[in-house]
Amino acid sequence: MIEAVLPQASLLKKIIEAIKELVSEANFDFSETGIRLQAMDKSHIALSFLHLRNDGFSEYRCDRSQTLGINLESFSKVLKCAANDDQVQIKATDKAESLSISFESTAKDRVSEFNVKLMDIDIDSVDVPDMDYQATVNMSSQEFARIVRDMMTIGEAITIDATKQGVKFSTSGDAGEGNILLRHRKTIDEEDGPSSTSVEINEPVSHSLALKFLANFAKAAPLADRVSINLIEDAPVMFEFKISDMGHIRFYLAPQIEE
């Protein structure tokens, strides 16, 4: 038996919106400690990783570990039937064939219930080793979304250069080229404002990445004020959006490699 309650449906809506473009169907692994999801996109270029801890839910019960295969488009459609402030409960019995999702209004005078069919999804999962990143950029997630949008007007690939001075995003295309530099601030405090950027660096590092994937990652911006971009030579770049007090979404993107 699985039962999980979130006080606001908007959080679950944002989580599903952040990954549904990259992953059409995914296995949700429920255990005593919480929910995990790992899925690659069809082209195996990006890996989405979601972790929601049990203590982030207002109620959480998982009698035995269970994997539920869910079509994210269907999940998203059902979640659109909830008001943002509705309480949402998801429930599945052992060996269930569907996931029950119910919404209760704040006044508790309206309760709706939907069932989404579960599916067997046979997908490869990968081992992500712990890595010592050479550089970590911590920046506003809104700023990240804006840079991705701006760069996409010019090119299809983006180069991220992290140095002690800051982080530079650049692109080029048939129409021309452009770059945006965010200077490193030592401390991120109120004086600097929430839009400031920090770059923790051991060694300068540079990666070229496909912009269309970053545009998908930027869909997680409503979940978190900040995003961290973790870079290491010759390995996928990791983008992390923390989900307040309960977990995170991480996206790993394979870099472009020299031919």
């Binding site: 690659m40 195996h44 270029i45 990006a46 990968v126 080793p129 010759d234 996928p236 394979a254 490699i257």
Partner: peptide
Amino acid sequence: KGQQGRIDSFFKIS
């Protein structure tokens, strides 16, 4: 310009 890498060429499939 480089060629697009794949996640499974960096991380092992378990």
